[in-house]
Design a protein around this nucleic acid. Structure first.
Length: 129
RNA sequence: CCUGCGCACCGCUCCGCCGCUCCGCCCGCCUCGUGCGGGCGGGGAGGAAAGUCCGGGCAGCAUAGGGCGCCGUGCUUCCUAACGGGAAGGGGUACCACUGGUGACGGUGGUGCCACAGAGAGUGCCACAGAGAACAGACCGCCGAUCCGCCGCAAGGCGGAGGCAAGGGUGAAAAGGUGGGGUAAGGGCCCACCGCGUCCCGCGUGAGCGGGAUGGCAGGGUGAACCUCACGGGCUGAAAGACCAAAUAGGCCGGGUCCCUGCGCGCAAGCGCGGGAUAAGGGCGGCCCGCCCGAUCCCGGCGGGUAGGUCGAUCGAGGCCGCGCGUGAGCGCGGUCCCAGAUAAAUGGCGGGGACCCACGGGCCGCAAGGUCCGGGGGUACAGGAUCCGGCUUACAGGUGCGCAGGUACU
RNA sequence: GGCCCCGUAGUUCAAUUGGAUAGAAUGACAGAUUCCGGUUCUGUUGGUUCCAGGUUCGAGUCCUGGCGGGGUCA
């Protein structure tokens, strides 16, 4: 299985994002914040995900792009493990990653924190059922 | 050789593995959608993509024509689709070098800067200081020739009437300047020159320039103050605008619709026929039957429209090459190329080399500035399309070329 | 993505048509009062008027460019 990340795995649409942001359950992992919601999705993928990097602390577009790409790459390389858990539970899930730091993160940090945040989220909301 | 400045240009590169997006072709899968998975080939950020400061293309709305108003621009000619942009030119100004003159000031060359129309249309404002600041002005001064008074034999002295804008002082600015003559002292009062205004002639498309004559000097500054003149501008912007179109609510149109019960058809929902009971808004009517309308709810349809999607949207005032025209910005002709089109938003991640730069240590060359080789270390900027073009402005490691200035060494 | 507004002591606000040394409250600091603290009184301090140019005799004010902050539009 290739570790791809295509369009249908991305969370889009104003209403869906708003639903996740307002009613979703959050996990905090220092510069990142993961908000997730178990909900049915009209896609073959087990999950859809969006990455948000607000303008407040990273003023330059180059820095925001770089940060988002690092986050996406960290998700891409590990998503298959999480997909397996969701398939086993027969659930679909929408996730929203928000970056809350004030400088571009390092690759090693990003990879570690993103992975840990999703693991914690799944442990709290899927594994116990 | 080094340093600085100006102008023009470039603005890291290669390999492996894992990924993204668009286009074309092909294969597989199913819940058949232009989905999901896969293969091959091709395209994939900038000189500023930025700030959003100007100008257009494009789109919608408004609009008979014209004026007023409002906003913008402002030496000339040209370039351009257009511009507040650019090119060439004119004028002014500052500095440097050389130079003419006793001096005011002028000439030549170079470099930088200039929002550079009008202050002979009107209005406003010019604090403080200063005697006086816009129909100028005697504070300190200078003079006191002339006239008056006093003193003296006289020469003359003192005081006053008064004369003076040359000097001092104030100020950002004080009624042309310099040199001389003249004078009681002074003053364009007179002369020469410098500057300025007006007129004429010549040159230039023009801004203007050159020459001559003339006036004795007209009269401050400020239009990035109101304003005048000339020219330009309808307003709003891709969240413009066009199309397709769930769910829910509401609108319009059509049909059905009181309750109880029996039989038949049907899997059921329900439909048809018969019997009984009788509540209810309005109309037709004296009243009843009956019929019609309305309300309620049900079914079907229509149109507006939201989520969502598609177009707008990537071939263009286009890039590159050659030739010709023009001082130049540019223009013309011919050839050639197709070069990002995302949309919660694509260029990324990891590893390893190469190139360049910086300081350090060591070797060699050189009188020296410096060059070169080796070693380990650090760095490679500013910055990311969002409708598209033309400019401007701002940010920027390092490198290349040309020009200028300065320094060092040698000949 | 478009449009609009603002920027003055540490903080909140003033400053007339452009006019001299940018003012007030509060804060901070020091002193007095008190056994101590608060209150009160007195004094002192504090400014690149966001930055860089320009116009003007003179700029917080006018003009140009930049920087920063905020608002608004589906």
């Amino acid at each position: 299985m290739r570790a791809t990340f295509r369009k249908h795995e991305r969370l889009t649409g104003r209403d869906r994002v708003k639903a996740v942001a307002t009613t979703g359950k959050a996990v905090h992992e220092t510069p990142f914040r993961l908000v997730g919601l178990l909900m049915p999705l009209d896609t073959p993928a087990p999950a859809q995900v969006a990455f948000a990097v607000p303008k407040r602390h990273l003023r330059l577009a180059v820095q925001r792009n770089r940060t988002r790409r690092l986050m996406r790459e960290a998700y891409r390389l590990n998503k298959e493990r999480w997909y397996a858990q969701l398939r086993a539970a027969d659930r679909q899930c929408a996730w929203l990653f928000v970056f809350q730091g004030d400088s571009v993160p390092k690759w090693a940090d990003t990879h570690e924190k993103i992975t840990r945040s999703v693991d914690r989220w799944l442990l709290q909301h899927v594994a116990r059922r």
